[in-house]
Structure formats: structure tokens, C-alpha cells
């Protein structure tokens, strides 16, 4: 959907639906249908957020929590996406490489990241390495599968056209296979970003005293539900903004998509 052709109805509904959810939330809590320990009212969450902005959480200011989480996700995302995309593209075009990765990656892929936490603690300790590797693994696997499917989408005639114009193997890969795979690669990046943030909370279970995941877990163990909600909303916002960025990038890079 082109930005200039987004109909008004779409925009209105996209804005109305979160407002409606917010209203429902406010209504349920104002009528005291649930105890605030389970579902605090929106204004209380806002107050908790304000408090964290002013005072920080657990002796560390909010910016530091956010930045340390972003840094972990960022490193894992860039490294995972680059490695996953490269391996996926190669798997899509070189059957020997596909064969090498087939069994290992298909065995690891269904394992829930949470199940790997004890192992990662044993292997890599409870520092940054474990946290980043846990996210890296999931992002790697998702981007790999998508890049592989994208590389396979290249039609025989398109490949032959490149070869008959003198393209070497590398030139065919760079000028033809890679652009063909780009739409699917971008889809993989979006899914991987979402999953990476999901695993962030689990990764920050591994110990440490900063990060939004730590904040949420710490607040929940003291039943400070308003802070749990504030942390969840911050992670949600990070996910929303990063997805907007990826979608905008996609529209800019893959200008030809769906136009034929």
C-alpha cells in the first residue's frame, strides 16, 4: 500500500482501535472490576512512567535501562540478520551449503529459546554474551529461513538472462539473486525484530541489574504492577517504532514490489 494512497478510513481505524482499547482499560479499572494489583488503571501506569523518568528504577535511570536493552537487541539484530541473511542466500543457491546446514538448523529451530537459558548460563555465564547470543540465535534462524526462500524465488529465465549477458557467478548473485530475495529478506527482518524483543525479557532473566526486561521482572516480583505495565508499554513502543522504520525502509528500497 503506497503511503499517498492510504485511504482515510484506514487511518481513522488505525488510530481508533488503540484508543478504544485504552478506553476499555480505563472503564474496567474505574468500575473496579479487577484488583489494581492485576490490572492497574492507565493513569497509575502513567504516574509510574513519570516516576521512572524522574527518579529512575532501582537506582539506575530509565534512559540507562532503555539503552542497555536497545544495545543488546541492536547487536544481536545486526549480527544475527547479517549472518542469517548471508547463510540463507547461500543455502538458497548452493545445494552443498544447504545440505551442510539442513539438519543442524532444523534441529535447533524448534527449540524454544527459554529452554536454552540453562545451557547458555553454563556455557557463557550470566553476562552480556549469554543475553546477546540468545537473541542472536533466534534472529539468525528467522532471517536465514526467509533469505533462503527469497533466493529460491529467482526465476530460471531471469538467471539465464543474466548469464547470457556475461554475468559471472558473483555478479548474478549480487545483481539478480540478492534483489530478487530482498522483499522476503525484509519480511524476515520484521519478524526477527519482533521475536528479538520478545526474547529480550527472557534474556534479561539471565541476571544483571539493568534493562527493560530486568525492570519488568524485578517489578513483578515485588508486585509493582504499574511498573510492570510501564516497562511492557516501553518495550511495545520500541517494537512499534522499529517496525515502522523497517516498513518505511522496505517501501523505499523495494520500490518495484507488487507493481507488475
Amino acid at each position: 500500500m503506497n503511503r499517498n494512497t492510504v485511504p482515510w478510513r484506514y487511518r481513522i481505524l488505525a488510530v481508533l482501535s488503540p484508543l478504544a482499547l485504552l478506553a476499555l482499560w480505563a472503564l474496567v479499572t474505574m468500575q473496579e472490576l479487577v484488583t489494581p494489583i492485576l490490572l492497574p488503571p492507565p493513569l497509575a501506569v502513567l504516574a509510574a512512567l513519570k516516576d521512572m523518568v524522574a527518579e529512575g528504577y532501582s537506582g539506575v535511570d530509565l534512559g540507562t535501562h532503555v539503552v542497555s536493552s536497545l544495545r543488546r537487541v541492536g547487536i544481536a539484530f545486526v549480527a544475527g540478520a547479517v549472518c542469517g541473511t548471508m547463510v540463507g542466500l547461500l543455502r538458497g543457491r548452493v545445494i552443498e551449503i544447504d545440505a551442510l546446514f539442513l539438519v543442524p538448523s532444523e534441529i535447533v529451530r524448534p527449540i524454544p529459546p527459554l529452554g536454552l537459558i540453562p545451557l547458555f548460563i553454563l556455557w557463557f555465564g550470566i553476562g552480556e554474551t549469554s543475553k546477546i547470543l540468545l537473541m542472536f540465535l533466534s534472529i539468525f534462524l528467522i532471517t536465514m529461513v526467509n533469505a533462503q526462500a527469497g533466493a529460491r524465488a529467482c526465476g530460471l529465465d531471469t538467471l539465464r538472462a543474466a548469464q547470457s549477458m556475461g554475468a559471472s557467478g558473483w555478479q548474478t548473485f549480487r545483481f539478480v539473486v540478492f534483489p530478487t530475495a530482498l522483499p522476503q529478506i525484509m519480511t524476515g527482518l520484521r519478524v526477527a525484530m519482533g521475536t528479538g524483543l520478545t526474547i529480550l525479557v527472557a534474556a534479561e532473566l539471565l541476571g544483571g541489574d539493568r534493562g527493560l526486561g530486568f525492570l519488568i521482572l524485578d517489578a513483578s516480583s515485588f508486585f509493582r504492577t504499574t511498573y510492570v505495565f510501564a516497562g511492557i508499554i516501553l518495550i511495545g513502543l520500541i517494537g512499534f517504532v522499529s517496525d515502522l522504520v523497517l516498513v518505511a525502509l522496505r517501501g523505499r528500497i523495494i520500490h518495484w514490489e507488487g507493481k507488475r
Binding site: 529465465d157 539465464r160 538472462a161 534483489p179
Partner: peptide, 13 residues
Amino acid sequence: RGVVFQAAALFDW
């Protein structure tokens, strides 16, 4: 030996 394909097979990007 250049080839012109039935569906053109142009590079859309």
C-alpha cells in the same frame, strides 16, 4: 549470443 525471453525477464529493480 543474447536471448530475448517470452516474458522479457527484465530486472525490475
